[in-house]
Amino acid sequence: MKKHFQISPVLAQTIVDAARELIGKEINFIQLDGEIIASTDPNRIGSFHEAAFLVKDKRMVIEVSENDTFKGTKKGINYPVMIDHEMFGIIGISGDPEECRSRGFILTKITELLIKEQMTVRKVHSLDELRSSVVRMLIFENQKKDEIINEHLHQLQYELEENAFVAIIHLHGLNNPSSLPVNMHDILLKQGIKLFTYLFPNQYAIIGNESQYKAVFQSLETYFLSMDIRCSIGIGSVGVLEELVKSYKHAKLALKYAISKQSLLCEYTKLELEMIMENIDPHTRNDYVTKLVGELTEEEITLLHIYYKNNLSLKKTASDLIIHKNTLQYRLEKIAEKTKVNPRDFYDSVKLYVALLLQTL
């Protein structure tokens, strides 16, 4: 095991995101000093979590039955993250303790698995372990090309250029494991991708050279479409190796957008308005989204996404939804009644479009 191992905010965020996929609850990762460094609720990142000190002192699970019983703490259950008798942090589920308790075992096992995996990236043997090790050191630890990485790359017979990028492939169909392609390993190698790692529960992170950028994704797009593999790909920015952590974050943002638009592929460099919105205060963002589309159903939200995807075309939207044009007009009128904003009016439509974009960030 690696001595003095530190859990980075990037790795912690990956852990809470993976846990939420399976548990369906808000998840927080708290450092031993009480700071929340990762959360599925962006508003809580950087805040103080007083109950973490109680978990740290008692080295046991602590349940909180009421909000604000401790400073910065919501009701839920908080677990010490213990590996080889050493505490690395605290992870918690927000919600009614009675509902959360049954999910605790899954949460702690996911956390332990992902941390152990990262702790052992330097102890590798097979080529698959080598490629995974390089990717994880670069995107989770912000590791530079040191002797260990160079040795791994030499064994893989792969030259990593000075400029590279990260992309994330998200496989749809999590609730039906049999629908996930079991040969992603071979698929990626055949497309010339030698650096990739599996991210629990349904994603792969890849690193490619700048010179591969266009060819790789044209090849992947063609293959996935021809094989009818349901997935979305978020492509991060190109930068020097020391900035691959940033490229990974950009890839996650692009992936969110691709999933929300039901697109196969999205490049961060082509997100213009979205990049500006990313810097808007989270509280302002949430208030705007709630005000504009908070009353809409999931079906109505999907309708609007398809409506904007088709550039406000009633004919194309009705065709995609397999409904009559008059039915679509009726549903848009209902949305206008709920939101007090008319999606068929240009200026009002922009307001709704912005709200939908903010909702995906």
Rank of each mutant, 00 (worst) to 15 (best):
7 I>S: 12
49 H>L: 13
19 A>F: 01
9 P>L: 05
48 F>C: 01
52 A>L: 01
31 Q>C: 13
39 S>M: 10
58 K>W: 04
26 E>T: 13
63 E>K: 15
43 N>A: 03
61 V>F: 11
41 D>Q: 14
58 K>Q: 14
49 H>I: 05
11 L>G: 06
13 Q>W: 04
48 F>R: 10
16 V>R: 08
56 K>N: 06
32 L>E: 14
11 L>C: 07
9 P>C: 04
9 P>G: 01
41 D>I: 00
50 E>C: 07
63 E>W: 09
9 P>M: 10
7 I>P: 14
59 R>C: 08
30 I>Q: 03
27 I>L: 13
24 G>K: 00
31 Q>K: 15
42 P>R: 00
56 K>F: 05
49 H>T: 00
16 V>C: 12
30 I>H: 08
12 A>L: 03
8 S>T: 15
20 R>Y: 12
16 V>Y: 10
29 F>C: 08
51 A>V: 15
6 Q>D: 09
16 V>N: 07
11 L>E: 03
33 D>E: 15
40 T>K: 09
50 E>T: 02
38 A>H: 03
60 M>C: 09
51 A>S: 08
30 I>P: 11
36 I>Y: 07
17 D>I: 01
45 I>R: 12
40 T>Y: 01
56 K>T: 04
9 P>Q: 08
19 A>E: 02
52 A>G: 08
57 D>G: 02
57 D>V: 11
50 E>P: 04
38 A>Q: 01
38 A>I: 00
46 G>H: 06
36 I>H: 09
54 L>K: 10
26 E>G: 07
52 A>V: 02
4 H>L: 14
39 S>F: 08
13 Q>M: 03
9 P>S: 10
34 G>N: 01
51 A>C: 09
25 K>S: 05
8 S>M: 12
57 D>I: 14
62 I>G: 05
62 I>H: 10
61 V>L: 14
55 V>H: 02
9 P>H: 06
34 G>I: 00
56 K>S: 03
28 N>S: 15
50 E>S: 06
50 E>G: 05
9 P>I: 00
52 A>D: 07
17 D>N: 12
23 I>Q: 13
4 H>A: 11
63 E>A: 15
8 S>E: 04
45 I>V: 15
6 Q>M: 09
53 F>G: 00
6 Q>I: 10
22 L>K: 13
45 I>W: 04
26 E>H: 14
39 S>G: 10
15 I>N: 02
33 D>Y: 10
62 I>P: 04
43 N>G: 06
11 L>H: 11
24 G>E: 00
31 Q>V: 02
18 A>F: 02
53 F>Y: 00
31 Q>F: 05
48 F>E: 06
4 H>V: 08
11 L>Q: 11
19 A>K: 04
45 I>P: 06
5 F>N: 09
63 E>R: 15
39 S>Y: 11
53 F>I: 00
37 I>Y: 09
27 I>T: 13
45 I>F: 04
21 E>G: 00
59 R>Y: 14
19 A>N: 02
4 H>T: 11
30 I>T: 07
62 I>Q: 10
61 V>M: 15
59 R>E: 11
29 F>I: 06
50 E>L: 01
27 I>N: 12
46 G>I: 04
39 S>D: 09
17 D>F: 02
33 D>P: 12
19 A>Y: 02
38 A>R: 03
55 V>N: 00
57 D>F: 11
31 Q>D: 14
58 K>P: 03
52 A>Y: 05
19 A>G: 14
